[in-house]
Structure formats: C-alpha cells, structure tokens
Design a binder for these strands. Structure first.
Length: 587
RNA sequence: GGGUCGUUAGCUCAGUCGGUAGAGCACCGGGCUUUUAACCCGUUGGUCCUGGGUUCGAGCCCCAGACGGCCCA
C-alpha cells in the first residue's frame, strides 16, 4: 500500500480520488452495536487514573468518583442519539458539568450515528500554502474567482454567533480561519458544530476562499466534518502550557499549543539532515555500531548496566561508539560517521540528559589539526544552512561562528584566566596547591594532568563564550588520544567550547597498540581503586589495533548541544523531545 | 549531594493579620449571520502536592516527605 508511506499531512494528487473515496465510505465506523467492544475498552482505559494528566500526586481523579456516579444515568438516555433539532436534553444535564464527561457525551452522540472517527476526509490544502498563494488577493477578487479549498486540522479557536461562526484550524503549516454559516452548511451540521465540537477536536472544512471585512483570508465552509473527537481539554488558549514539567511530560500538548516548541524540533531535524549532507558529501560512510557493549568504552563515564538472559551476561549501554568506529577504520572504512544515542549514568542537569545524541566521525590519514579545520567548516555550513547567517544570539550574547576559531593550549588558557604563570602550571606540586586554593576536592590518585584538567573546568570553561579550541589535553585524562611528539604528558587533542559549553571533542588517535595497552592498564588501575568512570581494559579492541590502524583522527560533536546553540535553548530538555524525568508515584 | 523558590479549579494565576477558597479562559444553558484572546446574560467546577504537628480554627505557622524550577558541587 504505497500511499501509506506518504506523510499523512501531504495533499495528494487527486487521480484515484473517486475510487479511494468510494472504498473509504465503507470504512466509516459502524454504529455502536458493532463497535461496542472496542468502545468499551477505550472508555475503560480513559477512566483509569492517569498519572500523566495530573503530573503530581493526584487529583483530577477526584472527579473519577463523580464520573462513576454520573455514567450509569447517562447511558440509557443516550441511545436515541439526537442532538440537534430537538431539545438538547437540557434538564438532567445540570450535574454533568465536568468537561471530560461532556466531551465523552458528545463522542457518544457521534458514535451512535457511526460518525465517531471517520477516515475518509482528505486534506488538499495547507494553511500556509493558501495564505502564500491567495493572501494578497482582494476581497472582491476572491469573491469573483471562487477558489475552492479543503483544509483540516485541530480546532484552536471558536467564535460562535447565532447563525454563523468562525473557527481557527491549525495544521502542520500554520493556522487558517474558517467561516461557517448555518445557511451554507445546513441546519443539522451547524447544530452539530455548535453542540458537539470542542476546542482541540480535529476537523475538516471544504469551501471557498473569501476575505473578511478586516482582510483575513478565510475558508467559507460549504461542508464541515468532525474527524476526531478530543476527550481532554486543551491548555489555556491564550497562555498555552507554561508549566515546564507538564511540557516535558506531555510533549504532545506542548507541540500543539506552543509554536516555539515546534520550531525548535523542526530546527533540530534540519540540523541532523545538514550533518548527514556534510559528511556524505565528503565521502564518509554512515554506519551503525552496537548500542549494547560487552565492555563499556570510548569515554570516561559511568555506564548503564543491563542483562542479556539468553547469553546470561551483563551488557552495557554504550557511553560512546568510538572503539567500534575505530575497528571499522582498521577494516578499511577510512571515513565513517555515526549519528546516534549514547547513554551515561550521571545526574540530570540543564546540560545533561542520560541519553543524548552525538555525531562521531573518523578519518584516516588526518590529524587533530585537520579536524579543527573541518569543524570550522562544518559549523559555518550548518549555520548558513539552518539560520542563514554566520553568527547567532545565545543567551543574549552575539556569537560569531563565521571566522576561524581561537586556538589555545590548555596551559595557556589556564594561565590567562588565573594569572598564574604558565611555568608554574607545569609543576605537579605547585598545581596541587593551586587546586586546593580553589577549594577543588583534590583526590590522592590525581597526577599533574588531572589537576590541570580540574582547574581548567573550574575556572576557564565557563569563560569561553566565543568559539575556542582548547588544545594539548593531558594524556592522563585522554586515554585514547595520541601522545604529543614533543611532550609525552600531553596529547594531540582539542575540545571546542562555545558559550561556555563543550561542543566537540577530537584528537589524533592512538594507533600504537602497545601505547594503548599501557593507557588501558592505567585506567584499569584507577578502576580498581574505585573510580567508577575509569575505562575497562579492552583486549578485543587492542587485538584490532594490533592488526594495524592507519594514522587516524576522530571527533565527537554533541548534537543536542548544537541544537541548543541554534535554537537559543538554555536547557537540553528543550531540545530533546522526551527528556528523562523522575517517575511520578503510581507510574 | 547542598542551598533556594515553587506546587491552589481542566489551563493561566490571585488569595490580606490564621477566621465560610477567588478571577480570567475552558466547560454547560441562553442571545447574537464578517468575528479576531469575539461579545453579552446566567450557571457549574476544589484531596489548596502528601503525611504529621501547633491552634477553638490552617491554603497561610512548624516538622518530614514527593515532584518541579533555578544556583552551586
């Protein structure tokens, strides 16, 4: 069924429209008798306490009691199923003021007529297209032309007058107003519209374009249809959904009512597309490596553990794809990249979600300087593609990503920020004093490199607002990075900082298996001493290196953090569709 | 992990000195055939996050906890 593959929102070419329509007429939902079983199931599910509706401990469900007392009385009277024409059974409605109950009542009316959830309406026009094409026409031009329009979407606003009404539909492209006159759609349909439709329902409107007296492009309805009843009310139509927690827990509502949220995730999608385009164009092969690792590796981080029953073995959700991607370089895929999730068992913060997305890429016959050049090129291209400029505003500050980024050795950056002479920073004992002087909780196992890194993180990182490559990371904190030729305690590694945040981490790779073995041994030592973040000794990876890896450089870039930069978002939760939250009771 | 602020109607929010819990929107009924967060009239809706305590009396004061925001580690 090929057309299933099309996005449902796209207008379709009308060639088989007639036959399709005929088929679909049969697909209309059967009246209550036939649908009874499913209907009841649905009702049962919705009647259960829903911890997500009220995110915190409780209530909403106080109304469950009311609902229960009301329902039995409501059912019998409803069978005849008539809402318009006659008196709307007004009298005994007085104790059914609960909105959810009202909506369920209305759905019952529709269901009894077999009109509950039809799937025969096909949208032909998107709001933004209509506005773009006809927004400039005058009232008279439109009246004369009689342009047909078929729109569908969620009912966001309703302005009901006696015998004519306006409603605003929202589709994926934007919003469009519809004008519904009783004399144009018929008395029965107008009564349905008045009494059975609610804000939040999905509806379709066929009609012709007009302009109102105030100049708003509007679809004047000839025919209206309720396509999907919404049983739960939408958040406040003016204020939207302000509660951050509810925005994350019920992202669908956030997306419905907060335009900005939709914009952020559309931008994120374009970012991912642009990343693929960039790497594909340069001959990198996109690959997928395991998310479940027998030995966690590739980053200094604490992993999540899970268990494979059939193999009866522990597996770890990956903290990074690095070691597998380098195996592929050994195998002859000399340019590879992977865009996917990593998992780290750490705290939650505005910058950390336990699962997050990176793009990691490896290139044979390159070093870390080549990658810094490539990174500048990449960010420049992303910005041109996505925001159409080479600078962005982030947290009120202008950040220029269009020119070459500053490059500074870590010792120099620390010296600049702290005022301590660089020569003093080369001495481990002196560095320990400095760290303690800054109230950094120094641990006994820390050597020179770790001390330098801690001081850097404490004092320098946050100050790096304009894009800056910090280079020459200590080997002690870089167990997979190639040693610097001139100074063995440093590595050919960089990290890129923008707006005080780490965006990228890249280095020339260790391809000397004996050096790598020593580095792993040092990590294993730390792990034995209780460092939960230290790496495992990965014998399989070493075996791969022993087959010979060409000189290679690799880099990882945080996709979430890029998305934050591009959308001026302060917290990662605003760029992750379903961020991790604490479970609420009763979940 | 520490500090701090918050949690009141479906949503957005007020709530005075400790003395019968409020508004706007939404919902229900009525009116209105070019409205614009439509408007007008009349209703309805509450586990004041949870559990203890103080008090004649607690949304408000005290203690503990849950969840969330922010800052720090």
């Amino acid at each position: 069924m090929p057309e299933r593959a099309l996005p449902a929102s796209e207008p379709r070419p009308g060639l088989q429209a007639a036959s399709r329509q005929a088929l679909r007429a049969g697909a209309r939902q059967a009246p209550r008798g036939a649908a009874g079983h499913r209907g009841r199931q649905g009702g049962h599910r919705l009647g259960k306490p829903d911890p997500l509706l009220r995110a915190r401990s409780v209530p909403g469900e106080g109304s469950a009691n009311q609902r229960r007392t009301v329902r039995p009385r409501q059912r019998p009277g409803r069978g005849s199923g008539r809402v318009h024409g006659g008196e709307p059974e007004g009298g005994d409605m007085t104790d059914e003021r609960n909105e959810a109950e009202q909506r369920r009542r209305k759905l019952g009316e529709l269901r009894s007529r077999g009109e509950a959830y039809p799937n025969s309406f096909r949208r032909e026009d998107l709001a933004a297209d209509l506005l773009h094409t006809h927004g400039g026409s005058s009232k008279e031009e439109l009246a004369e032309a009689g342009v047909g329009a078929t729109v569908a979407g969620r009912v966001m606003l309703r302005r009901v007058m006696g015998k004519a009404s306006f409603l605003t539909l929202q589709d994926p492209s934007g919003r469009i107003q519809c004008y519904i006159r009783r004399d144009a759609v018929g008395e029965a349909a107008y009564a349905d519209f008045r009494h059975l439709w609610d804000l939040g329902d999905i509806a379709g409107v066929r009609g012709t374009l007009m302009k109102t007296n105030t100049g708003e492009l509007t679809v004047e309805a000839k025919d209206v249809e309720l396509l999907a009843k919404s049983l739960r009310p939408l958040p406040d139509k003016h204020h939207g959904l302000a509660d951050q927690e509810l925005r994350y827990r019920q992202r669908h509502l956030d997306l419905i009512v907060n335009d900005e949220s939709q914009r952020v995730f559309r931008t994120r999608a374009r970012l991912v597309t642009a990343l693929r385009r960039f790497f594909d164009a340069r001959g990198y092969l996109e690959v997928e490596t395991p998310m479940m690792h027998p030995i966690p590796g590739g980053a200094v981080a604490r992993p999540f553990v899970t268990h494979h029953n059939a193999l009866d073995t522990e597996l770890y959700l990956r903290v990074a794809p690095e070691l597998y991607l380098k195996r592929l370089v050994v195998g002859g895929f000399e340019r590879v990249y992977e865009i996917n999730r990593c998992f780290r068992n750490e705290g939650l913060s505005p910058r950390h979600n336990p699962e997050f997305t990176t793009v990691e890429f490896y290139q044979a016959f390159a070093d870390y300087v080549d990658l810094m050049d490539l990174t500048e090129e990449l960010l420049g291209e992303l910005l041109r593609d996505i925001v159409g400029a080479t600078s962005i505003t982030f947290e009120g500050r202008e950040i220029d990503l269009g020119t070459a980024f500053r490059r500074q050795r870590m010792t120099a950056a620390v010296a600049t920020e702290t005022g301590i002479p660089e020569s003093d920073l080369m001495d481990e004992g002196r560095l320990g004093e400095v760290a303690r002087g800054m109230n950094i909780p120094v641990e006994s196992g820390w050597g020179w490199g770790r001390l330098l890194m801690e001081i850097f993180e404490a004092r320098v990182e946050a100050e790096l607002v304009q894009p800056t490559f910090i280079t020459h990371y200590p080997a002690e904190v870089s167990p997979l990075a190639r040693r610097n030729a001139d100074e063995a305690r440093l590595t050919d590694r960089f990290e890129l900082f923008v707006a005080g945040r780490e965006i990228a981490n890249g280095f020339s790779e260790v391809n000397d298996p004996e050096d790598q073995a020593e580095r792993f041994a040092r990590q294993a030592e730390l792990k034995n001493r209780g460092d939960l973040e230290a790496m495992h000794y990965d014998q399989d990876f070493l075996a791969a290196l022993e087959h010979g890896m060409p000189p290679t450089a690799g880099e990882g870039i945080g996709v979430d953090r890029l998305a934050m930069l591009l959308t001026d978002s302060t917290t990662i939760r605003d760029v992750v569709l379903f961020p991790q939250l604490r479970r609420v009771e009763g979940d």
